[in-house]
Design a protein around this nucleic acid. Structure first.
Lengths: 125, 125
DNA sequence: TTGCAATTACGAAAGGCTTCGTATATCTTT
DNA sequence: AAAGATATACGAAGCCTTTCGTAATTGCAA
């Protein structure tokens, strides 16, 4: 299991690729520009670096390269959570869960989902 | 409400001050050195910067300055969670909660605590 | 009091992230 | 074929974080 440690800008791009699937730099840049102003070569450079790091893989057959995410969404987020818990909650996932939950506004449906998950965890022991 | 945005190294120091209360640079540096090698002036500089940023306040009456945390633990962690959720979970606290919980190994007591919290949230609506 | 130890202040280097300018190559359109 | 648009490659600047070296100051001990 490789250790993914994407930066903030990289994660934003990963999210887009996870959702949309393989895309060109132009595709990604257009989406980013819908949120805020980003230069094309900025996005390009970022994705080239991500490719070097192994976060993305690209198909260079055509002039316009097509990139896809290598880093898996679940794995990546788990790594992020793990780092975050260590940094901010001294390793206690439950502390994070409690505080994040306490601070969020959650619908009854979401709370039910959460209760199911807890029930599942309880049966595992 | 000021926006605290401590860096990783700063958060490590904040944790110590939150737990131990006011302390000198020497105190903090000794504790940090129990975990890993850190130069004294490194810790000093960090705490000076934190003081400038308003994260810490210091008493300079004596030669050895005494620092205390200004940033409140709960507020700071809430801010960190908020940023993290936006960055990694596109704003959905519940997604974070579910994934963090699913990935943690939690004791029956902790799960009970969590259920109480959920019950409390359910009554609030 | 003289020298050693501890403290603060300050500057700056090293590394990482993000951004962009410029050069070059490859299409597309006329 | 020429001109313009679009793509990639590359280097470097700017900023932030972390780290540490050096100098100056203060306190303590012999």
């Amino acid at each position: 299991m490789t250790k993914f440690k994407p930066t903030d800008a990289e994660i934003e791009i990963l999210h887009i690729l996870w959702e949309k699937g393989p895309a060109s730099v132009r595709d990604i840049n257009d989406i980013l520009n819908g949120r805020r102003e980003v230069g094309y070569t900025t996005t390009l450079k970022l994705m080239q670096i991500m490719n070097e790091k192994g976060l993305l893989k690209r198909d260079t057959a055509a002039r316009t390269h097509i990139y896809k995410a290598v880093a898996k969404e679940l794995d990546t987020k788990n790594n992020l959570i793990s780092d975050f818990v260590n940094m901010a909650f001294q390793g206690s996932s439950m502390d994070l869960v409690m505080q994040a939950l306490g601070n969020s506004t959650s619908s009854p449906e979401e709370l039910n989902e959460l209760k199911s998950l807890i029930a599942k965890l309880e049966n595992k022991e």
